[in-house]
């Protein structure tokens, strides 16, 4: 894949969305349902990315001691949920992930 092409497209879309009302302004209207729907986009997209990483890191469902992703990601979510500190959650989850691999995953 051409990374610069990918980035150019991302840039164009991002700036056009941000400029939508500010630059092209008054003529656009935002229906109320879309307004509310947008709040759910980040949790939906992020969960759609995270859940398969946790439950099926290699493509097939793996709920066993060998899957260190599952406890690691659960810990990341719990710590962030409790403390609200993203970086702390990532660091602690990395420790759990590392220890789990060391303890349960052969090789």
């Amino acid at each position: 894949m051409n990374h610069w092409l990918a980035i150019s497209g991302m840039m164009l879309l991002t700036v056009l969305i941000r400029a939508s009302f500010l630059v092209f302004g008054q003529r656009l209207a935002f229906p109320d349902w879309l307004n509310r729907a947008l709040h759910y986009v980040p949790p939906a997209v992020l969960s759609a990315l995270v859940v398969p990483m946790a439950l099926a890191p290699a493509g097939t469902v793996d709920i066993s001691l060998q899957n260190a992703y599952l406890p690691g990601i659960i810990v990341a979510a719990l710590v962030a949920w409790k403390s609200g500190k993203t970086l702390l959650a990532i660091v602690i989850s990395f420790v759990v992930y590392g220890l789990w691999r060391w303890g349960f995953v052969p090789g």
Binding site: P43, L46, I73, T86
Partner: peptide
């Protein structure tokens, strides 16, 4: 992969305190 997953999980978790957001996350995950 793990770093990516942990980052996403840590970003999303605090957003799930309201029930509709939690429902959105569960449905998307399933």
């Amino acid at each position: 992969d793990f770093a990516m997953g942990a980052t996403f999980a840590a970003i999303v978790a605090p957003q799930l305190k309201r029930r509709p957001a939690l429902g959105a996350a569960v449905a998307a995950g399933v």
